Deep mutational scan, measured.
Amino acid sequence: HMTFVALYDYVASGETDLSFKKGERLQIVNNTEGDWWLAHSLTTGRTGYIPSNYVAPSD
């Protein structure tokens, strides 16, 4: 899985979304859904959809 880092805080707007904090590391499970990607937080262990423009590839 690709690892990304959150650029901003995001508060989930629905049950399927994943809240995260700036700097949180996320594994992308599925990024074929356009602007919303299914991600797994390496910080909280939770999985949900995130806005793709809130994250950047982590080196």
Rank of each mutant, 00 (worst) to 15 (best):
H1C: 08
H1Y: 15
H1D: 12
H1R: 03
H1M: 13
H1N: 15
H1I: 14
H1A: 14
H1G: 14
H1K: 06
H1F: 15
H1S: 14
H1E: 12
H1V: 14
M2P: 12
M2W: 08
M2F: 11
M2I: 13
T3Q: 09
T3W: 15
T3L: 15
F4R: 03
F4Y: 15
F4E: 01
F4Q: 03
F4M: 13
V5M: 07
V5I: 14
V5G: 01
V5K: 05
A6M: 06
A6N: 01
A6G: 06
A6F: 00
A6P: 01
A6L: 04
L7F: 03
L7A: 04
L7K: 06
L7R: 04
L7Q: 05
L7T: 05
Y8V: 07
Y8P: 00
Y8H: 10
Y8C: 07
Y8T: 07
Y8N: 06
D9A: 05
D9K: 02
D9V: 02
D9Y: 03
D9P: 04
D9R: 01
Y10R: 05
Y10Q: 01
Y10G: 01
Y10I: 01
Y10S: 01
Y10L: 03
Y10M: 03
V11E: 13
V11M: 11
V11H: 11
A12H: 05
A12N: 05
A12C: 04
S13P: 07
S13N: 13
S13H: 13
S13Q: 15
S13M: 13
S13F: 11
S13W: 09
S13K: 15
S13C: 07
S13D: 09
G14P: 03
G14R: 15
G14N: 15
G14C: 09
G14W: 09
G14D: 09
E15P: 13
E15Q: 11
E15I: 10
E15W: 08
E15F: 10
E15V: 09
T16K: 15
T16P: 05
T16G: 14
T16M: 15
T16N: 14
T16D: 15
T16R: 14
D17Y: 14
D17F: 15
D17L: 09
D17C: 07
L18G: 02
L18H: 02
L18T: 04
L18F: 09
L18Y: 04
S19V: 04
S19E: 06
S19H: 04
S19P: 06
S19Q: 05
S19W: 04
S19K: 03
S19I: 04
S19G: 08
S19N: 05
F20Q: 00
F20K: 01
F20A: 01
F20D: 00
F20R: 00
F20P: 00
F20S: 00
K21G: 07
K21A: 11
K21H: 12
K21C: 09
K21P: 01
K21L: 12
K22P: 02
K22Q: 10
K22E: 07
K22L: 05
K22Y: 05
K22G: 04
K22F: 05
K22W: 04
K22I: 07
G23V: 00
G23Q: 02
G23K: 01
G23L: 02
G23C: 04
G23F: 05
G23W: 05
G23H: 04
G23N: 05
E24I: 00
E24L: 00
E24P: 00
E24Q: 03
E24F: 01
E24W: 02
R25M: 15
R25N: 09
R25H: 11
R25G: 05
R25P: 08
R25E: 13
R25V: 15
R25T: 15
R25F: 15
R25D: 05
L26F: 15
L26N: 00
L26C: 01
L26W: 03
L26D: 00
L26G: 00
Q27L: 15
Q27G: 05
Q27N: 09
Q27D: 08
Q27A: 12
Q27T: 10
Q27R: 12
Q27S: 12
Q27K: 11
I28G: 03
I28E: 01
I28K: 06
I28N: 04
I28P: 10
I28A: 08
I28T: 03
I28Y: 02
I28Q: 03
V29R: 07
V29T: 08
V29W: 12
V29Y: 12
V29H: 13
V29D: 06
N30T: 12
N30M: 12
N30K: 11
N31L: 12
N31C: 08
N31A: 14
T32R: 11
T32I: 12
T32E: 14
T32F: 09
T32L: 11
T32K: 12
E33S: 15
E33M: 14
E33K: 11
E33N: 15
E33G: 14
E33R: 09
G34N: 13
G34P: 13
G34S: 13
G34Q: 14
D35W: 10
D35H: 15
D35I: 11
D35T: 10
D35L: 12
D35E: 12
D35G: 11
D35S: 13
W36A: 05
W36I: 07
W36N: 05
W36G: 03
W36Y: 11
W36S: 06
W36P: 05
W36D: 03
W36Q: 06
W37D: 01
W37P: 02
W37F: 06
W37H: 03
W37L: 07
W37I: 07
L38I: 07
L38F: 14
L38P: 02
A39R: 00
A39W: 01
A39L: 01
A39Q: 00
A39F: 02
A39T: 03
H40L: 15
H40M: 14
H40W: 10
H40I: 14
H40P: 00
H40Q: 12
H40D: 03
H40C: 09
S41E: 02
S41V: 02
S41P: 00
S41A: 04
L42G: 04
L42I: 11
L42K: 05
L42T: 08
L42D: 06
L42C: 07
L42S: 06
L42M: 10
L42E: 08
T43K: 08
T43M: 09
T43S: 14
T43W: 09
T43F: 07
T43E: 14
T44K: 02
T44A: 03
T44P: 01
T44C: 02
T44W: 02
T44H: 03
T44V: 02
T44G: 04
T44L: 03
T44F: 02
G45L: 06
G45C: 07
G45D: 07
G45W: 04
G45N: 12
G45Y: 06
R46H: 10
R46I: 08
R46G: 10
R46C: 06
R46T: 07
T47P: 01
T47Y: 11
T47N: 06
T47K: 09
T47H: 08
T47L: 08
T47F: 11
G48D: 01
G48R: 01
G48L: 02
G48N: 02
G48S: 01
G48V: 02
G48Q: 01
Y49L: 11
Y49A: 04
Y49M: 12
Y49T: 05
I50R: 00
I50E: 00
I50T: 01
I50M: 02
I50S: 00
P51M: 06
P51Q: 06
P51D: 05
P51E: 01
S52R: 11
S52F: 09
S52C: 07
S52P: 07
S52T: 06
S52H: 08
N53G: 13
N53Y: 11
N53A: 15
N53P: 05
N53V: 09
N53C: 08
N53M: 10
Y54V: 06
Y54C: 06
Y54R: 06
Y54N: 03
Y54I: 06
V55H: 03
V55L: 08
V55A: 06
V55T: 04
V55G: 03
A56R: 11
A56S: 10
A56K: 10
A56G: 11
A56L: 10
P57R: 07
P57T: 09
P57A: 11
P57G: 07
P57H: 11
P57K: 09
P57L: 14
P57V: 11
P57I: 12
P57N: 08
S58C: 07
S58L: 15
S58V: 14
S58E: 15
S58T: 13
S58K: 07
D59S: 13
D59V: 13
D59L: 13
D59H: 11
D59T: 13
D59P: 12
D59C: 08
